Simulated scan of single mutants.
Amino acid sequence: MDLGLQQKTALVFGAGGGLGGAIAKALAAEGAAVIVADINLDAAKATAAAIAGAGGHSRPIGWDLADLSVIEANIAGIEADFGGVDVLVNNTGGPPPTPAAGQDPALWLSSFQSMVLSVIAITDRVLPSMRARKWGRVITSTSSGVVAPIANLGISNALRLSLVGWSKTLAREVGRDGVTCNIVLPGRIATPRISFLDERKAEREGRSVADVAAESTGSIPVGRYGDPQEYGDVVAFLASARASYITGSVIRIDGGLIQSI
């Protein structure tokens, strides 16, 4: 299937590894030029090297989402060299595991800026050119916690949920301009973030990491953690010309883990 991503430019955040890296590689494999953005430039370079090794085209860039002041210069540079962003993949890091109650307001504020406000500001910056070209894709990766809140991820559950409402509202505003906006939810995908969360849970409960992982996989209908490539492939489809009638949606990539309808 030709996904129609040749000659398109994609900007992928958190692309130095994990889900973002898998998404960047999947888009590049379909012919898109990928801007590999990550707070860790060395990690971004490693993903870009892997893309180049597979015959794809990409450019790494160091980008701290908490710093809103760099948005204009970074996007202007991409527009000058690539002609604009056709596919935007908003993929941010998560806050530390915490209960919902009793957290320092400063932590809420810093997390909001890096996880929510940055996403909105960057999307607002690239939307005018998408709308002018009558083609664009805004895909935001959040968490299964937005439909089934996860224990001890109070900040993540709350802030990521705000992006669902924003994306749904935006989809209605820009749909007639050929721009789609969708949310993707990972279940238990085998990334360093999941390993970290398993380790923290094991520490809290005085159990082994292997026991925690076994319990987690036991609750997944397909019986395993997901492969990051499986996640990247779904995002590549949503970014494609073939997915032009999918917008305002929340897509679960979870192996059946989320029990709510």
Rank of each mutant, 00 (worst) to 15 (best):
D2M: 10
Q7K: 15
K8S: 08
A10D: 08
A15H: 01
G16C: 06
G17Q: 10
L19A: 03
L19V: 09
K25N: 05
L27W: 06
A32V: 02
V34Y: 02
I35S: 01
I39V: 14
L41D: 05
A49W: 07
A52H: 14
A52K: 14
G55D: 04
G56E: 05
G56D: 04
H57I: 14
H57C: 13
H57F: 13
G62H: 04
D64S: 10
A66F: 06
V70H: 11
I71N: 04
A73N: 12
G77A: 15
I78F: 06
A80P: 03
D81N: 14
D81Y: 12
F82R: 14
F82K: 12
V87R: 00
L88T: 03
V89F: 09
T92C: 13
G93S: 13
G93C: 11
G93W: 01
P96F: 04
P97M: 15
P99F: 05
A101D: 09
L107W: 04
I122Q: 09
D124A: 14
V126F: 03
L127G: 01
S129N: 12
W135R: 03
G136M: 08
G136S: 07
V147R: 15
P149R: 02
I150W: 02
I155R: 00
S156P: 07
L159D: 00
R160A: 03
L161P: 07
S162C: 08
L163H: 08
S167K: 10
T169K: 10
A171D: 11
E173S: 11
V179G: 00
V179W: 02
C181Q: 09
G187F: 01
G187K: 06
R188F: 14
A190P: 02
P192R: 10
E205K: 08
T217I: 12
G218F: 03
G218K: 00
I220H: 04
P221N: 08
P221K: 04
V234E: 07
V235D: 09
V235M: 08
F237C: 01
L238C: 06
A241N: 09
I251D: 07
L257C: 06
L257Y: 13
L257H: 12
I258D: 10
S260M: 13
